[in-house]
Amino acid sequence: MKGTLRGAWIVFLKDARSEFRTRYALSAILLFAVASVALAGFVLRGAMLDERQAAAVVWLIVFFAAATGLARPFVQEAESGTELLLRQAARPEAVWLGKFAFSLGLMAAIELIVFPLFGAFLGVDVRRPGWLAAVAAAGAVSLSGATTILAAMVAKARARSSVFAVAALPVLLPPLVLLVEASGPAFGVSVGAGQPREALLAVMSYSGILIVLSWFLFPGVWEE
């Protein structure tokens, strides 16, 4: 286990270094997030969103930014022909964990851009920032955790990025709905309306199951 963690950390550092050096992929993903928020702000200008609608719009933006970006860690290995080197460098478990960590970082960056910008552009008050941070963290873990193995799968397909969106969307829809439900109180939905706590727990258990399942399935997908 210690070896796996160490290997995962090295894979993560390699990805981070490589992506920060070129930056074009990272900036494209983050720019997409910015553009989506700006677009939502422009289209919805003047509209009075209630709390639930605000939560739905912000999570949809995060969700589509994730669908454009989260295939990157594996697709980039496939496109540059480095898969065989990575397979020699690290055990499958370390590869999965390292890529998961990288996706999680990417999700955190997307959320750190989307949430504040959304608040600013649409004039949404955040009543309970602590709760929102907890929901956002759960969202980042569930979106990146569920899609890491899907990214490895589509890396072996043709038309990778469009297949990724198609494969990831339905698997991520349940957590998306639950995250909207869970974010209610953060935007001021009165406590007692809906079941935010239950929704948050449901997101965590749903993604927990997918993460455990991915851990066991990944070697069978990654090795040839």
Binding site: I149, L150, M153, A167, P170, V171, L173, P174, Y206, I209, L210, L213, S214, L217, G220, V221
Partner: peptide
């Protein structure tokens, strides 16, 4: 693997 993952949703 996808069939096994899909059973969760």
């Amino acid at each position: 693997a996808y069939a096994l993952i899909a059973i969760v949703p």
